[in-house]
Design a protein around this nucleic acid. Structure first.
Lengths: 419, 419
DNA sequence: CCATATAGTTCAGATTGAAAACTAATTGGA
DNA sequence: TCCAATTAGTTTTCAATCTGAACTATATGG
């Protein structure tokens, strides 16, 4: 018997709620759900061009009548706004330009090992406010960290009030495995957190969509997809204290059945390699993690002036030990990427975090390694470096909430009508 | 700007045509498309239980009225048939049992390195006829091979005629990378085929859905999913002459943006390993491919009695060299699976082909290797062995066509109404 | 100032599922 | 034997929503 099933949305999650439930029956009303989303998405995609209703009709394949009706609902709910007349220079009546409202926003937040950040992103994807503070969070109690983050969130809320932006929800990225439904950090080894309950909803009281917890590498990957260098399919490599990864397939995040896909740092790159903190052995992280690189480069912990800065200086001075350390890291990263590319048919890679900083010195070794292990598989021009830096994670965290509105505006309309 | 997009169906392909196009507008008629598919799928899933209309209504969430109307269309087209009265032992009017028609079938075919096979599968997934012949296809011209396969296909067609089964289409699995749209074998190294145009449509003239080309490992994986040991998420490992893999995510085949995902055989398992035929180095195939195992076990090519049989005999006799060879293969397969599990969050593995035959001796080394490189990641009970043997590939190849009918019955209805 | 062109709205018509009332077929007990 | 109860399936009415065509609104250019 054939018992395959429709795609289960928990595996690939580009936004949150899918337009259609897994195996729900189609109802006449679903058509409108879908078309509302189609129009929202079309406006988002067109971006700065501020399309008119007529252009949307042409772009989506819907009739002008249908688009008018859909846009009316979206404008009434405040998700979309008209921004003056649009003129093509041609003859005829000018259209009303449409955009995702600049007066609805989402707060993006990030907890990392040595800093906290918060920002305000409007529906159009513009970063309207951004604030970062250093904070040595490793080993700190989650309550303490959340308290500090609350201060940053308050700044973002104040900025929103000042700009007359109403906050729909928030996204919070954490360097660890999370259970989004239950607001749990299952495991964040670099923070020394295991199974901690956060209460992110407290950060943004009254926001209709609440606060959505997410993984740092995954959010950064989504940030690249929506606001940065990402194409529709790529692997984002996050070199923070650990080595993480985010897999984007068909413009959606692939999280795997258990939600922990993309663990690039624990791919085995040498069968006789040393034990890893994950319990395994020969993992990429033991060769290319920040700690491993610093150690191989001979830059001890607690060095004055910052280990990253010292490493960069040593590289600039062509110091052999540092050069070799980064070269080796690049080689092993190449092994991991070659294997990943073969397994998942990945054709593009975006380097972020530490690897972005070291890219200049890392890239040659990485490319020659890729050429050795998987010649011709990954075009060098598809190996790019993130240009969003720290705001990528923030944008991605907020973007997930924005994306959920774009994918399910109907649900949002309903909620706002009831309120 | 947020510019993510709806899931592109070319990345995950469980069947062929998705119910909805990528970014097409929702029309009122789409609702029926979806519900026709929902009902078909529901009947397929219920399988031998032969559900009544009332049970389908309860199962799908549709009203009895809607189900009646949908079933009427499906019965009229011949895709679904009523199979007598259904009795629960309870009171009340008995329902009409429904099943996917046993009088519509799909021909599954397979070209492999040393054999050809064809079979007839009805819409309900029953293998109604099956025939395999040995054929040393390596290096043979595609035309010659297709001619031989034509003989097998004719047998299947005759069997269909005898059983009064009308053939809707066919599936042909090949051990290589294929371009399904253009009926091309892009690369099948073990057949020594590169960029060969097949004409599979000639095998089944007049079949309304044509013949669909597919990759052997992928079809075997789908066969396991639909008819065998597969769950909704697993990695199928195909140990034929090469080492291949098929990735099933959320009950759909993951093929990657370029269509070549799952190349488990070319994951790097040792950075200092020997050169591989793929141009890379240290690939799993150089350690765990059939050739590598035979060689390490000291069983020369052309041995009398068959290399596999000699290997099994040596293993049964606990001969050290053979035992060590299989142990090493298991160890390296463990490395590849550990990396795969980490990257894709894979929680289950099904061993097929050569690995299924060797499973008894391979499994201990494989499990201890997994425990060493990724402890706790993959539960031993989730490492299973295929029990479909060679018919898995055949069932998968045919199943893809069956699945496409289940997912898009409306298109089929249209076509059959025009004819 | 009017012909032309483009934007957007209004309204009749078609498709479709929900809900409810109805018909059909069976069991079990009076 | 026959009728009440029960379950299956159909018919009818209604609401949602898109299409298509006709219509109104607003601009340009000669």
């Amino acid at each position: 018997m054939v018992n395959g099933s429709r795609k289960n949305s928990s595996k690939l999650q580009g936004g949150s709620t899918p337009v259609n439930e897994q195996n729900a029956p189609g109802r006449v009303g679903d058509v409108r759900r879908r078309n509302l989303s189609l129009v929202m998405d079309s406006i988002a995609r067109t971006g700065d061009a501020k399309p008119s209703r007529a252009q949307l009709a042409a772009g989506t394949g819907l009739t002008k009548a249908a688009v008018s009706s859909l846009v009316a609902d979206l404008v009434e709910s405040g998700l979309v706004s008209e921004v003056g007349l649009y003129r093509d220079g041609e003859r005829g009546r000018p259209g009303q330009g449409l955009e995702l409202s600049a007066r609805r926003g989402v707060v993006g937040m990030e907890i990392n090992v040595d800093y906290l950040a918060a920002g305000l992103v409007d529906l159009g994807g513009n970063l309207r406010f951004h604030s970062t503070v250093e904070s040595r969070n490793r080993g700190l109690a989650p309550e303490k960290v959340m308290e500090r983050l609350g201060g940053l969130a308050a700044e973002a809320i104040a900025a929103a009030a000042a700009a007359d932006i109403s906050i729909l929800g928030g996204g919070l990225a954490v360097p660890g495995l999370v259970d989004e439904q239950r607001n749990l950090v299952l495991s964040a080894p670099n923070l020394h957190w295991e199974h901690e309950a956060l209460n992110p909803q407290n950060l943004l009281e009254g926001a209709p969509l609440g606060v959505r917890l997410s993984n740092e590498a995954n959010s950064a990957a989504l940030g690249e997809l929506w606001y940065g260098a990402g194409q529709s399919d790529f692997l984002y490599v996050s070199g923070e204290v650990g080595v993480g990864g985010g897999v984007i397939i068909g413009s959606e995040l692939y999280t795997g059945p258990g939600g922990s896909a993309g663990e690039l740092g624990h791919i085995v790159v040498h069968p006789d390699g040393p034990a890893c903190s994950c319990g395994g052995a020969g993992c990429l992280e033991t060769f290319a993690g920040q700690e491993a690189i610093f150690e191989a480069a001979g830059i001890p912990e607690g060095s004055l002036g910052g280990r990253t800065e010292l490493l960069l200086a040593a590289l600039a001075a062509r110091e052999p030990q540092a050069t070799q350390a980064v070269h080796d890291a690049g080689r092993y990263l190449g092994v991991a990427l070659a294997s990943s590319a073969r397994l998942m048919d990945i054709e593009a890679v975006v380097l972020g975090g530490h690897f972005a900083v070291l890219a200049e010195w890392l890239r040659p070794a990485l490319l020659s390694s890729l050429d050795h292990y998987a010649p011709g598989l990954l075009d060098p021009s598809n190996l790019t470096v993130s240009n969003l830096e720290h705001s990528g994670t923030l944008l991605g965290a907020a973007g997930q909430v924005i994306r959920s509105v774009i994918e399910s505006p109907f649900e949002f309309l309903l909620a706002s009508k009831l309120a």
